[in-house]
């Protein structure tokens, strides 16, 4: 009755969201006095797999020949590896969103997404999740015997101790019905949905040429960049950066909003960030009501100063 966890990798390495899911799995395993088995897809070197031991994984099954983008095959192989386990943990990332619903049907397991807490009870699974664009928190209970829990990135602390895990390989080959014909990735850039810090700017920036300072600030902070909807609509920034009700939902530790008024549709996508900072010329801008820290001031004055200060602390 091990707890299973999907350890997602990107180009052969794990990210924070993976370690969050593993830490969550280890804590749940402690609660239920059992162990943790990780499933990894694609080519991940042994030294990377071994790291999982430090987060409480006892055993890793590495399926090197399964492509995580092929959700159909991924769900099938995961299902075959489950044995008698009842709980499967995911981090709520792109590929998890494709795999987990399929797997939940195969397992007939209740699926809960966007989870922000550990189970409150050891006899039944009872967890909190975000609801209504983070305007509420819902406590839900799993009725079925099996469950898939998908954790909202950045809402669970990574817990590291030194430890060892056993590694086994699974050589199954499978391909689904979707053919990939081409890929375009902005490699090296920090993924917006998982970033711990997001620097975001709006129409107050006046034009696309002024994003140089936004990118410089983001670089210094190790942050991803985002923007308001009108900014991506006019084409100043790519659509993939648009956050809010109709764009991406993000929940970083720190969200810095520069020249963004703070319309409710924008806040819907960012208001579960831990700390929000607003920088706006208008003291009446609604963002100040949502923010933890604010500067009433001109971005063209404040941002260069922030950059200068951060360079000093480096």
């Amino acid at each position: 009755m091990s707890i299973l966890v999907y350890t997602e990798s990107w180009n052969g390495s794990f990210r924070k969201s993976t370690f969050e899911a593993v830490s969550y799995a280890s804590e749940t395993a402690k609660l239920l006095s059992t162990d943790v088995v990780a499933i990894s897809l694609g080519n991940v070197p042994n030294e990377e797999l071994e790291k999982l031991g430090n987060y409480g994984v006892n055993k890793v099954i590495s399926c090197e020949k399964i492509n995580k983008e092929d959700a159909e095959s991924a769900a099938e192989i995961m299902h075959n590896l489950i044995n008698d386990s009842n709980i499967f943990i995911f981090s709520n990332t792109y590929s998890a969103k494709m795999i987990a619903p399929r797997l939940s049907i195969k397992m007939k397991a209740g699926l809960i997404t966007n989870i922000i807490s550990l189970s409150e009870d050891s006899s039944l699974l009872k967890v909190k999740r975000k609801a209504f664009s983070s305007k509420a928190i819902e406590t839900v209970v799993v009725k079925s015997e099996k469950a898939i829990l998908s954790i909202a990135p950045n809402s669970f602390k990574v817990i590291e101790n030194s430890g060892m895990c056993e590694i086994t390989k699974n050589d199954t080959i499978k391909t689904g019905r979707i053919t990939v014909e081409g890929q375009e990735t902005s490699s090296g850039k920090i993924s917006l949905s998982e970033a711990e810090i997001v620097v975001s700017a709006g129409r107050g920036l006046k034009g696309p040429e002024n994003w140089t300072m936004i990118e410089e600030l983001a670089d210094l902070l190790g942050a991803a960049t985002a923007c308001s909807k009108p900014v991506s609509d006019i084409g100043w920034r790519p659509h993939s950066e648009h956050v809010g009700q109709t764009g991406k939902v993000v929940a970083p530790n720190l969200y810095i909003a520069i020249g963004i008024s703070g319309a409710i549709q924008h806040l819907a996508g960012v208001n579960s960030s831990k700390i929000m900072v607003a920088i706006n010329t208008d003291p009446e801008a609604p963002f100040f009501k949502a923010a933890n820290y604010g500067i009433v001031g001109d971005a063209f004055d404040v941002i260069p100063k922030m950059i200068e200060e951060l360079k000093k602390t480096k």
Binding site: E69, S95, G182, Q183, S186, K189, S191, S240
Partner: peptide, 8 residues
Amino acid sequence: IDGGQEKV
């Protein structure tokens, strides 16, 4: 997809 897009 994460950090980009894919033609399928």
